[in-house]
Amino acid sequence: MSLNVWGYLDEYANEREELLQAVDAVFSSGRLVLGESVRGFETEFAAYHGIAHCVGLDNGTNAVQLTLESLGIGAGDEVITVANTAAPTIIAIVGSGATPVFVDVLADSCLMDTGQVESAITPRTKALLPVHLYGQCVDMAPLRGIARAHGLAIVEDCAQAHGARQHGRPAGTMSDAAAFSFYPTKVLGAYGDGGGVLTGDDAVAAKLRRLRYYGMEDEYYVVHTPAHNSRLDEVQAEILRRKLGRLDGYIADRRAVARRYEEGLRDVPGLQLPRTVPGNDHVFYVYVVRHPRRDHILAQLRRHGINLNVSYPWPVHTMTGFAHLGYRKGALPVTEALADSVFSLPMYPTLKKDDQDRVIEAVRNAAAVAL
């Protein structure tokens, strides 16, 4: 049997009846756009985080872009972030009209090196955009200090950190606003695209609601500022409402899988396992390991029907689509080294112990041959 990183079909089999009930509830309501399901999810997701507002959007990319726009960030401005992220983070910055400026990441956690941020600030810098990667948070205390000192906004990219915490504070509550993706693979995933923004700022929330709805407010056809069509779909919102109640359970199951990997792989020569930063509660969106002969190990595993993901094989600053930013190979040495060595083991709440044992044995055998 082939095994990969994600577990869509297992989840659907386990939750099928409730998911179909969610779809039927929306179709039976007669309100298919910005109805009770979106409002309900927004209220419940905000309450889960203990924050005033959630604004539902159509995807995580637009969640980042519209958040920047809601903060008045655009053409001529710079946003400091990392290249060790999925390209949509950077696409969103460019889409807002701003210019991404990259700092490197820490080798042990793969997260933003906050010690490099202050030296990257210029008179054009308007925001810091930390990416909470793989399921745990960037060190936010120094970023908040830098932001206060320089009058900068902070936007958290929480696409991979639903339910993660830092010193007890939920990811998404340590900034001016925070963007989430609800893509199906996420810790809290829909059955299609979806996104959202958390903020405690009434004005930012109000602007986001206008930006997602053509620039309109209460009265249809009255456009205050031309904007976007970026609404969260009612069906996806209702599915997310049902799944939100399971989020803590999903996280507990992911942590159990992570502990089993730790126990089975901690003594494998050359294999570096994930490190949870002190103060962080890791939710293990992905279980990312490192090995100097990564490609050899992946080839060996494919022969056994185990197909693993690499997050990420091409740093964003090296992609041709961002060549105009002017970065060259060698500009971000830690990010580039990670791209040559990281790979993700299967990680999802329904991963069976037998399948996990199969992965552990295959990785151990492949690593032994690799050395």
Score class of each variant (00 low, 15 high):
152 L>Q: 09
19 L>K: 06
149 A>G: 07
187 V>L: 13
293 R>C: 09
34 L>Y: 04
185 T>L: 10
229 N>C: 13
114 T>P: 01
199 T>Y: 00
368 A>W: 05
136 Q>S: 13
290 R>Y: 01
255 R>K: 15
80 I>C: 07
127 A>N: 06
89 T>R: 04
176 D>E: 08
177 A>R: 04
211 L>Y: 07
257 V>T: 11
41 F>A: 12
287 Y>D: 02
355 D>Q: 15
12 Y>S: 06
158 C>K: 12
42 E>P: 02
234 E>H: 02
137 C>Y: 06
169 R>D: 07
244 L>F: 05
267 D>N: 13
235 V>F: 00
270 G>V: 05
25 A>R: 15
237 A>P: 03
248 D>C: 04
216 M>W: 02
276 T>R: 06
290 R>E: 14
164 A>P: 09
252 A>K: 11
293 R>G: 02
23 V>T: 14
11 E>C: 09
304 H>Y: 00
24 D>V: 14
78 E>D: 07
310 V>K: 10
261 Y>K: 08
226 P>W: 05
363 V>E: 01
17 E>I: 15
28 S>R: 15
218 D>I: 03
319 M>V: 04
29 S>E: 08
360 I>T: 09
56 G>Y: 10
267 D>K: 04
217 E>Q: 13
89 T>N: 03
10 D>M: 04
335 T>F: 02
356 Q>M: 15
140 M>V: 03
352 K>H: 15
208 L>Q: 05
186 K>C: 13
322 F>Y: 13
14 N>H: 07
45 F>Q: 05
164 A>T: 08
60 G>V: 11
137 C>F: 11
213 Y>V: 01
